[in-house]
């Protein structure tokens, strides 16, 4: 079965519908599936629920889907650095479910692993736990209360990887792995954009980060002009 598609629009063909839930990889602007986001914008699909750690910045990443008001609800841990998001949120046009970062990652991992719920200590006694079931367990730190959180089962996962072979085995690069790996596993269908497709057999099977079983469709998104939110450097000491 051929997983490689010529472009993002064809890779998403038949997968998009109004009101669907999309899980997206990336942390800030690092490792975001930008070609696929562009194609979702172009498709005009709306009423989306998007599970993603962040919401991009104005006109970058998921910020593009916010500008066009295609997102109805975000499930995120941190949404700073986004004026349009703030405007829609304060105007009541956008629903936001704040989810602790580790809980969000685990909800995606759990969803992908077929686990509908799990208990975590994170958020116990805070607003995040309001309305959720709690249960006392004898854990590593003695008897404590834990909060029931639900796995995420998304209709579609859109992620970015560094390299893939033709069968969809993926390798990520540095901190661009982030939410891309758990997000990829929790979609009914996972579409991946990569910087490079390499011939099957050229990746060391011991060095695959995510096996191709999770990947249904792929595109090559290169060339990328990767954005950096905050450039921080040190000066080289001159001899």
């Amino acid at each position: 079965m051929k997983k490689l598609f010529p472009d993002a629009t064809s890779a998403l063909d038949g997968l998009l519908h109004d009101g669907m839930m999309i899980a997206a990889g990336g942390f800030g602007l690092c490792g975001i599936p930008e070609r696929l986001i562009d194609a979702v914008v172009e498709s005009g699909v709306s009423g989306l629920t998007v599970a993603s750690n962040n919401a991009g910045i104005d006109n970058e990443g998921l910020g593009k889907l916010l500008r066009t008001k295609q997102i109805a609800k975000m499930i995120s841990s941190y949404v700073g650095e986004n004026k349009e998001f703030e405007r829609q949120f304060l105007a009541g046009e956008l629903e936001v479910e704040f989810c602790p970062q580790g809980t969000l990652a685990e909800r995606m991992r759990a969803g992908g692993a077929g686990i509908p719920g799990f208990y975590t200590r994170t958020g116990f006694g805070t607003e995040v736990a309001e309305g959720k079931e709690t249960k006392r367990f004898d854990g590593p730190n003695g008897e404590l209360d834990y909060v029931l959180e639900h796995g995420i089962f998304a209709d579609l996962a859109i992620v970015k990887a560094w390299k893939a072979d033709e069968t969809g085995n993926l390798v990520f690069r540095k901190t661009a792995r982030n939410f891309n790996l758990p997000a990829a596993t929790c979609g009914k269908v996972c579409v991946v954009e990569v910087e490079e497709i390499v011939p099957t057999g050229s990746l060391d099977p011991d060095h695959i980060h995510l096996p191709g079983v999770y990947v249904q469709r792929m595109i090559v998104g290169a060339p990328y002009d990767k954005k950096i939110e905050f450039v921080t450097t040190r000066t080289r000491e001159t001899a």
Binding site: C30, K174, P182, F230, T232
Partner: peptide, 24 residues
């Protein structure tokens, strides 16, 4: 390197003992 940032989204560098992993 745009692929190498800290949680504050600032560019950083790696050490000889660094390890990368996913958010989960």
């Amino acid at each position: 390197d745009a692929d190498l940032i800290n949680a504050g989204k600032q560019t950083i560098s790696e050490l000889d003992r660094s390890a990368y992993f996913d958010s989960a």
